[in-house]
Amino acid sequence: MATAVISHEEEVRRLQRREGWKRRLPILPALLFTIAVTQIPFLFTLFYSLTDWRIDTVDPRQFVGVENYVSLSGDKFFLDAAWISVQMTVMAVMGSLIVGTGLALLLDRKFFGQGFIRTLLITPFLVMPVVAGFMWKTQMFNATFGVINWVLNTIGIDSIEFATKYPLASVVVVLIWQWSPFMMLIVLAGLQGQDASVLEAARVDGATAWGTFRQITFPQLRPFLELGTLLGAIYLIQVYDHIEVIVGGQPGAKNLPFYIAQRSIGGGNRFGLASSYSIIVVIASIIIANIGLRVLSGLLEDNS
């Protein structure tokens, strides 16, 4: 009697286990592939960062502990690149968020040609970053053929070679041009999820447009703005293409990813040191992502 009960319970547990595996199995290939291609190389980077490895010498790599990290605080190139990374990311994210929100507010109304204008506005996001960089550099910023300088000349201002004189600002302008449409779409999703009756009630109560925006729309948009900030920051901290094309090897706009590639596989060969830079970028991203995931998690809770 007793043994029968136990074996029955075991049978149930065995079935449950099998059912659990059946549910997990479809996820495994994707999971294992992702781990193999992203997580394992990261562990290698972590290991490299603790060595003095250079691939252009035959000297065996030596374990140097945290020496690379200690040297960072006095490494002028690293500090410059890190500071440029911070400025570029913050300016591009804030800029595209502000422009994107403005565009979303303008688009969230009925007007003639709404669909057409929306199509035009999302196009920059589809454009290949390399092309976006070239186009702005050679046809907008350029001192002789650039449209912006042509406009400046007609109103009596001398031409400015933007890409050499203001490399960081030039890159940021192109980034904002490409990322505003993305932010616009996210904010638009938020705007269109608004409760119409609440807006109606505000209007009946005689609220001004600004008052309605600040008191009702903005709080509702907040999670969407946070989401846009998170996704934008994650992508924009990694910008490489625009810098390569617009400023190339010149100083003034080299962010960490650009500098890391240059100092390692791009001919610098200093894998150990460059790996420690990479780890710093990853840590910064983890901090941003942790804050962001909490936001996303909140969104999922609310909607499930």
Binding site: T34, T38, Q39, I40, P41, F42, F44, T45, Y48, I234, I237, Q238, Y240, L256, P257, I260, A261, S264, I265, F271, A274, S275, Y277, S278, I279, V281, V282, S285, I286, I288, A289, G292, L293, L296
Partner: peptide
């Protein structure tokens, strides 16, 4: 999603 947060420079050398 979190793997998307791992910057490419974090894995490019290996």
């Amino acid at each position: 999603i979190s793997t998307k947060f791992l910057p490419i420079v974090g894995i490019i050398m290996p």
